[in-house]
Nucleic acid binder design. Structure first.
Lengths: 195, 195
DNA sequence: GCACACTGTTGCAGTCTGTGCAATGTTTGC
DNA sequence: GCAAACATTGCACAGACTGCAACAGTGTGC
């Protein structure tokens, strides 16, 4: 195994930095948070901080699960209802392995709630996934609906983040329930708009 | 009128700065764009630049039309279908006065197209409106659907920005057609998801 | 006209963010 | 072990952004 140890270390350091950032943000607020302080708290040099995260916002959120276009391309030619496919694809994103760390997500939420100006952060973090999904949906829906593809992609990832948020604030909801929350949300939006 | 001349000047300067930013961005790319260069091109001091825009991204987009919660609160108690109300409210945002400057919007698009990393910009610019709309929708939909309200608000403002984009890239589409584009988009999303 | 308040512009000094580079360690494959 | 690959770090520096205080232009009341 070549990069196994290195890989684990990288993950560990990335996680250390994120936790340091969250701890400091909760203690002193986002305004007073500096990259230097985060680096010190995490026990790395300021320069190293930027080897892991592009900025302190990214450090707070950590590395988001990335949707892999090749793994997800089945959705292009599926015959199942779009809603079902979206739910399956997106829950796959957050269900594989123990990706979801409830206390960490709660800390993130606390920080975001305390600083409303950070609201766009969540969106930006999911932006990458939204783009991938939008590309796939464009293929599925055909050339004439690029806008619809992007809108649905944004709506779906937004619904996922709400579902994850709700899951994180509940005390003992199993991760499998995220699927249900996500579906309910999308259906509700549909119903409200179609009425 | 005391503040009339001043107000006009402020608008003029804000517009000068935006145009300077767009010109430079198109000429040299967003990467090479500095606030100092924008200020120089616009004929103001670097310090003044920040009196008008919080950062260079904001300068590129200009002051977006702001939704006024008090003016828009009729939507809370309306009995009309939600879709109709959304279309009316949002088109009202962009239709009053000659707010929409087609060549300017096209320049913005060119810049955004040239720098994909700026994609989140549009979203962030509309963030304020999304929040206002989300608040209103939360009142309309009741306490038990905060997530749905936010999702619909995001979807609707996203659809509006697509509609405006399409309008801007067409050569002689009247602004009134934005309403049609917006409605079509939202309906299409609905249809695709409900199926 | 003149003094006055109001508002906007500017320069300056300073903090924080973020990057390129080169030196120094550490891991890995062989 | 040794060499290649990779990670960490310090340093120097450019750019973003802010607070403050001085200054200039405009409108107001007299």
């Amino acid at each position: 195994m070549s990069s196994d140890l290195r890989e684990r270390r990288r993950r560990q350091t990335a996680d250390d930095i994120q936790r340091a950032a969250l701890r400091l943000a909760l203690r002193c607020g986002f305004e007073a948070l500096t990259t230097e302080a985060i680096a010190a708290e995490a026990g790395v040099s300021p320069r190293t901080f930027f080897n892991y995260y592009a900025n302190k916002q990214a450090a707070l959120l950590g590395r988001p699960p990335r949707m892999d276009a090749d793994e997800a391309c089945w959705i292009v030619h599926s015959d199942a209802p779009l809603l079902d496919d979206l739910v399956a694809l997106l829950t796959g994103l957050v269900e594989d392995g123990a990706r979801l760390d409830r206390p960490k997500i709660r800390m993130v939420r606390q920080v975001l709630d305390a600083s409303p100006e950070l609201e766009p952060l969540f969106h930006d973090m999911l932006e990458g996934n939204t783009r991938v999904l939008a590309g796939l949906l464009q293929q599925r829906l055909g050339m004439d609906a690029p806008a619809e593809a992007e809108l649905i992609a944004g709506l779906a990832t937004g619904a996922l983040s709400h579902a994850v948020r709700d899951w994180a604030s509940a005390d003992d909801l199993p991760a499998a329930e995220i699927k249900v929350l996500l579906r309910r949300r999308l259906q509700a939006v549909c119903r409200l708009l179609c009425a």
